[in-house]
Simulated assay, not measured.
Amino acid sequence: MENTTAYPIRAVDRVCDLLDTLRVATAPLTLTQIADLIELPKSSTLRYLAALEGRRYVLRTGDTYQLGPAFQPMHDEYLERLRETALPHLVQLRDHFGETVNFGVLAGEDVVHVEVVESAQPVRLAASRGDRAPVHSTAMGKVLATTMDEDHLEAMLARPLPAVTENTITTAVAFRAELAKVVERGCGFDDCENQPDGRCVAILLPGLAAPMAISVSAPSSRLEPDEMAHRGAEMHEQAEALVRALQAVPR
C-alpha cells in the first residue's frame, strides 16, 4: 500500500499556504496581494477564499481579507485571564440586578460569550460559556457593532441578516438606525429579537484591548421596555470596577 503522506494533496497545501499568509500578515490583504504571495491565479485564490469565508476561517472586509472568527481573535490564555478577572465582578452584578449577566467579545460578526453568570431565579435567560450569537439580533452584538470600521460593517450588511425571531432587525437600513440609537443612549437593547420571550440590555466596556461588552438578560415579564434605558445607565455605574480590573489584565 502506498504511503499517501508522501503525496500531499495540492489543494490542501494551497489552503495552508493561504492561511499562513494571512496569519503572518500585519494588515488585511487584497485578493491580488494574496494571489501574488501564494503564486496562484486570482480566480483560483478567490475560490479558496470564498470557501474559507463560508466556514469563517477568513473574514472579508470590503476588498481585503484576514483570518476569520473561527480562529480566536484573542489567544486562549488571554481570554482565560479575562474570564477569571471578570468572574467575581460578574457575580456581584448578577446579585445586584438579580438577573443573568453575560460577558462577551466581538469575533467577526458574532458575539462570543466569554462568561455567563446565571440568575438564581427559577425562570431565567442564559447562554453558555463559549456560545456564539449574531451581532444583529443581540444587545451585546449591537454595542460591539458600534466599534466596527465602516468596511467591516458594510460587508456584514451586504449579506442577509437572518430573522432569529419575528422581532429581529433584518435590513441594513434598520440596523444602521438602531446603531445610531445605541450610540445616542449609550446602551444596546434586545427586545425579544434573539429569543421570543427575552429582553436584554448591554453596554460597551471602554478602554480595553479589544471590543468587549456585558449584558443583563431577563424574561420579558421581568424587564419591561420602558425600564431598559434606566437599566443601561445603572449598568455603566455598576461596571466601573469591572472595567478597571479588565484594563489591568496583561496581554
Score class of each variant (00 low, 15 high):
E237I: 03
A50W: 04
V182E: 13
A51I: 01
I203T: 04
M148E: 04
Q238M: 14
D36F: 03
D131A: 11
C187H: 14
K181D: 13
E224P: 01
V249W: 01
L93G: 09
T61S: 13
P122K: 15
P88D: 12
Y7S: 13
V201Y: 03
L59S: 02
Q33V: 09
G141P: 06
D151T: 14
V143M: 04
S43D: 05
I169N: 09
Q33D: 10
R124T: 14
G186L: 10
M1G: 14
T5N: 13
A155N: 09
A86P: 02
V15R: 12
R94I: 12
A202L: 05
L59D: 04
L125E: 11
M1Q: 07
L179E: 09
F71A: 04
I38G: 14
R94S: 11
E39S: 15
Q33Y: 06
D149F: 12
D110K: 08
A86R: 01
V112C: 01
N167M: 11
A209E: 09
V15P: 01
H113K: 05
E150V: 13
V15C: 03
T21H: 03
V116H: 06
E115Q: 02
L52Q: 11
Q72D: 01
D17R: 12
S220H: 13
M212L: 07
T61G: 08
A245M: 08
S137L: 01
L153K: 09
A86Y: 06
Q195W: 04
P41W: 03
G141F: 00
D110F: 07
R10L: 13
